[in-house]
Amino acid sequence: MNHLDELEAESIYVLREAFAKLDRLAILWSLGKDSNVVLWLARKAFFGHVPFPVIHVDTGRKFPEMYAFRDRYAKEWGLRFIREECPPIEEVDPTLPPAARAAARKTLGLQNAIRKYGFRGLIAGIRRDEEALRAKERYFSPRGEDNSWNMKDQPPEFWNQYMTDFPPGTHVRVHPILHWTEVDIWRYTKREGIPVIDLYFSKDGKRYRSLGDMDITFPVPSTASTLDEIIAELEATRIPERAGRAMDHEAEDSFERLRAAGYM
C-alpha cells in the first residue's frame, strides 16, 4: 500500500461507519475537486453505488462549467441528486462583509435542506490543511440544534471510534478526507481518472485553485494546465490554497464566525 492507498482506505472506513450508523445521511456536493473526490470515494466504499442522496446547495452563482459538470455526472454516476436553492441575500445578516455574507447565505440554504429532509448526517469534503480552523475538526463533528459547531467542546475521537449517537434535534458532519492535503487530492484525481472541471487548469496565465461563487472566487497566477503541472506547482508553492477566496481575508475572525454558525 502506498500513501494514496492508505488515505483512501481511511476515508472508505469513515464513509462506511457513517452509512452503518447514521440514519438520513446525505453527501454535500459543492462540485469542486474535494467533493468530487469524496463522491468517488463513496463509490469505492459502496462498490459503485452512492446509497444516499447527494445535495448541491445552490447559490445560483456558480460558474457555468460547474453546472454543466454537475448535470452530466449526476446522471452518469446514477446519483440520487437533490438541488437545494439558497434563500435571497436579503435574508442574510447584513453586518457580515460581502463575501462572508454570501457564504452565510449558503449556510442558510444548507439549514433549510437539513430541516426539509431531516438529515442526521452530512458528509462534507473539508480538509485539515485548508485552513487553521478546519485543522481542529473531527471526522465525526457533532452540530447543535441550531446547526452550530462548538469548537471548544468537541468529543474525543481516537482508535477509529467516532461519535455516532447524538441527542435528538442535532446532527453530525462527517469529514472523510479530513486527513488529505491539496496535493493528495490532485494525485488521487490523476491516479483514479476522476473528471475535473477545466477552470482548475491555467488559461491566460491564471487558474482557479479553489472554486466557489463566481463573484467571490478569483483565479491565481499559474501556468499549470495539466494534472502533472498542478501537482508540480503545489509541491513548490507556499501560497495558501484559499488565497483566492475573498471571505477568508475580510476580517481576522470572519471564517471562525461562519464556521461556528454551521458553514462547512
Binding site: Y13, R16, E17, F19, A20, F46, F47, G48, H49, P51
Partner: peptide, 11 residues
C-alpha cells in the same frame, strides 16, 4: 463494518 446488497452481490 456492514453487509451490503446493492446489486446481485452480497458483500
Amino acid at each position: 463494518q456492514d453487509v451490503y446488497k446493492f446489486d446481485h452481490r452480497r458483500i
